[in-house]
Every structure is written in C-alpha cells, then in structure tokens.
C-alpha cells in the first residue's frame, strides 16, 4: 500500500503544502501514478468538489521490492476556499494519490490524507 505523508496538517492559503509518497511496489508496476490536492463539500447539499492541483509521477522511479520516497509540493491558491465545518455544509481538503495498474482485473490503489486550509494573515 502506498503511503502519503504531509509535513503539516494545516496550511494557509498562498502557502506551500509539502509531503512525500512512500511506496515499496510489488509486481506489476503502475502504468500511471498521480498525486493531487482538492476540496469537496459534505453535508446536506449536493456534493461539490474540485481538484485544485495534480502532479504526474514518473513511474520509472519505482522498482519492484525497493522502497521509494518521492517528495511532493503543492501551492494552495490565495483564492482557494478554506476548511469549514458549519451547520449545513463542510469543506474538506485532502491530498490523494492514485496508482493505476495495467490489466483489466487489477484494481487501482488510492490513498488520501486530510489536511486543513486556513486563511492567511495580511
């Protein structure tokens, strides 16, 4: 199972969120690997979501049986919504890594890590 670790659990809009992916792959190697950050709503309303930034990971960096650590960084836009826990709705931020494997019967692997986005100080 791939692991995503964030260096901070709270980040301000306009700041950089950094983290790393750690994985020891078994066969087969993924054909595509992406890591993304985005927000989604929860609560009484219809769910809305937006992928804010997505990075492609070079799958050639993985080798079977060898633990690989890949650092990742994301810039949180200054106009991005902040995390919110209200009465009718919540805004939740998460970083997600998805590994897509070749073959019809192989399931994709996905791992998510929640973090909070706060307003910045001027």
């Amino acid at each position: 199972m791939i692991d995503i670790q964030l260096s901070q659990t709270e980040v301000r809009v306009g700041d950089v969120l950094s983290g790393r992916l750690i994985w020891t792959p078994a066969r087969p190697l993924p054909k595509q690997a992406t890591v993304a950050i985005g927000w989604r709503t929860e609560g009484r309303g219809t769910v809305n979501s937006q992928k804010v930034q997505e990075l492609q990971i070079d799958c050639d960096r993985f080798a079977t049986g060898i633990t690989t650590t890949i650092p990742v960084q994301f810039q949180i836009p200054t106009s991005a919504p902040v995390s919110y826990d209200g009465l009718l709705l919540r805004i939740i931020w998460e970083a997600t890594v998805v590994l897509a494997f070749p073959g019809l019967l192989t399931r994709n692997q996905q791992q998510a890590m929640l973090f909070r986005v706060l307003p910045r100080s001027s």
Binding site: T41, G45, T46, N48, Q50, P81, V82, G86, P119
Partner: peptide
C-alpha cells in the same frame, strides 16, 4: 468569520 465560498450547490 468564514470567507465567502461559492460552488454550484453549496455557498457561504
């Protein structure tokens, strides 16, 4: 307070 938020089905 909380900043403005505008999505299709959820707003502040």
């Amino acid at each position: 307070g909380t900043p403005s938020f505008e999505a299709n089905d959820n707003c502040i």
